[in-house]
């Protein structure tokens, strides 16, 4: 079937089996490799993207439900190459990634959290950031999430 959606601000029309996970359409159909496969069962969060601003684990999201939706992946999180999203900036400042494979999923989950709770407490972070990082970079990630909230607030204040 034909499915139409907007991804990172660009209108796309894809031909796919409607039950195919959105993840593979993004990775192999649209060649956006920043969204990762980890488990295929929505258990690790490596494939986290935004669908209409909400975080979704794309490995378990049938592409047919993307019809007419606004999708954002890590490639579209920042406005431009030179202008990183506050979450990415904070990740750079705190030097969070080690192997880096799961990090796009964490950054997407964090961006969605900040959109909902601009200044999350440690408890908010514990309850909402439930992806898996095998390098276990959680300690720096928590610092980066707080820092991202600060950067986010500063950006809003400047506007």
């Amino acid at each position: 079937m034909k499915i139409n959606f907007t991804i990172n601000g660009i209108n796309k029309s894809v031909e796919a089996d409607g039950d195919s996970p959105l993840l593979w359409v993004i990775r192999d159909g649209l060649d956006l490799k920043g969204t990762k496969f980890g488990c295929g069962k929505a258990a690790c969060g490596a494939c986290t993207i935004h669908v209409d601003g909400k975080q979704v684990r794309s490995c378990s999201f049938p592409v047919k439900y993307a019809e007419g939706k606004q999708i954002t992946t890590i490639e579209g999180l920042s406005g431009s190459e030179s202008d990183l999203h506050p979450v990415q900036q904070a990740w750079m400042e705190e030097v969070v990634p080690q192997c880096g494979y799961c990090q796009p999923g964490f950054m997407m989950a964090t961006a969605a959290l900040l959109a909902e709770i601009p200044n999350p407490t440690d408890e908010d972070i514990d309850n909402n950031i439930i992806n898996v990082c095998r390098c276990a970079t959680y300690y720096r990630m928590r610092k980066a999430i707080h820092r991202a909230a600060e950067l986010h607030a500063n950006a809003i204040a400047q506007q």
């Binding site: 990415q88 750079m92 030097v95 990634p97």
Partner: peptide, 27 residues
């Protein structure tokens, strides 16, 4: 010194084995 691979890793660059491709590739 800041990690040399930091920017690639926060922007989701296709750097991993699973991101590798060839044109005309099968699965």
């Amino acid at each position: 010194i800041r990690r040399v691979d930091l920017r690639e890793k926060v922007t989701g660059a296709p750097i991993f084995g699973m991101d590798a491709t060839y044109s005309d590739m099968l699965y």
